[in-house]
């Protein structure tokens, strides 16, 4: 088991290496390359730029530059923002919690609803409810998230005036209730895609498990249907879902970007778009790397969780 985990960590590190190469390549694609941040400074002459380029090692061969860049990256030196010269990592750190709050709450919501819908679909396979769930999930996956955001704003903020249309809190009001009211709409919007995906996979995982011999055994020993569902079907159907949760992370992060834009939520997604608007490439690249790293960590966490929940892997 330790072997398995070590090899998975090794694989992740290797992937991280490729990810960093992609990140580096993108950075050098930016107009003016890494030097452009100084090109904008007023009073900068060509000679100055040349000197800076030399100091930064930009006249070195690309592989060397990459290694230097990677070395800085590993030491937490991710460059500085063009906008306010703040360290990139610090800026991202400021915006990360809001995104995590949004992602975590919407995931919890989506997993609860998605599991319920998926299991119900599987238990009543080919019923009207099952068809509706299938169609609903397919449509949900086809709705542009930002538009869904506009629709709920139109309904719940503009027409009904129940909930705020954006922001993370009312200024000067830090109460939990106020925070919750701001969270509801973005959370629901972000949960839409996850609910759809999760319920589809949950349905097929449930059907798979329900056809297993050990479920027949559970019935043969006289367990009640509810007990069979909880102790035997759900417990096993959750295993592939752990992997799915890891794989869905990039989609979730992408969704968060859109939801944050619509709801002016001060997270990583908004930061990304703002930075794009200012051509603040160091921050953009930093965010790209952070999102890829989050994904890798998520997948690794999913693998570890899987090991915890599946004795066959744990004890192998």
């Amino acid at each position: 088991m330790a072997r398995y985990l070590l090899s998975r960590i090794g694989q992740s590190l290797f992937l991280l290496l490729i990810v960093s190469i992609i990140g580096f390549a993108l950075l050098h694609l930016t107009p003016g390359g890494p030097l452009s941040q100084f090109a904008l400074t007023p009073g900068m002459t060509a000679a100055d730029l040349h000197r800076i380029a030399h100091e930064m090692g930009l006249d070195q061969p690309l592989p060397i530059q990459y290694l230097v860049w990677l070395w800085h990256l590993l030491q937490g030196d991710w460059g500085r923002s063009y906008r306010d010269q703040e360290p990139v990592l610090a800026i991202i750190g400021e915006h990360l919690p809001a995104t995590l709050e949004l992602m975590a709450s919407s995931t919890i919501l989506a997993v609860i609803i998605g599991t319920w819908v998926g299991v119900l679909s599987a238990m009543r396979r080919y019923s009207v409810a099952d068809y509706l769930a299938t169609i609903g999930a397919m449509v949900a996956l086809s709705i542009p998230t930002f538009w869904f955001g506009l629709v709920v704003i139109y309904i719940f903020s503009v027409s009904l005036e129940w909930l705020p249309s954006g922001g993370i809190a009312t200024i000067g009001n830090g109460s939990v209730l106020d925070l919750a009211r701001h969270l509801i709409l973005p959370c629901v919007v972000l949960a839409l895609v996850t609910v759809a995906t999760w319920s589809r996979y949950m349905r097929s995982a449930t059907l798979d498990v329900a056809a297993q011999d050990y479920v027949r055994t559970a019935r043969a020993k006289g367990l009640r249907p509810g007990q069979i569902l909880r102790q035997h079907i759900l417990r096993n159907a959750m295993l592939p879902m752990i992997t799915l949760a890891g794989l869905q992370l990039p989609t979730l992060l992408g969704g968060a970007l859109v939801a944050e834009t619509v709801f002016t939520w001060p997270g990583m997604g908004r930061l990304f778009l703002d930075s794009l608007g200012y051509r603040d490439y160091p921050v953009v690249m930093g965010l790209l790397m952070v999102s890829a790293i989050l994904t890798l960590i998520g997948n690794l966490a999913a693998d570890i969780l899987y090991v915890v929940f599946d004795p066959r892997v744990r004890l192998a």
Binding site: D213, T217, Q231, N236, P311
Partner: peptide, 12 residues
């Protein structure tokens, strides 16, 4: 049943 492997729940 015939298959004692698959007839027992692997996670319990």
């Amino acid at each position: 049943f015939q298959e004692p492997m698959t007839s027992l729940n692997p996670v319990h």
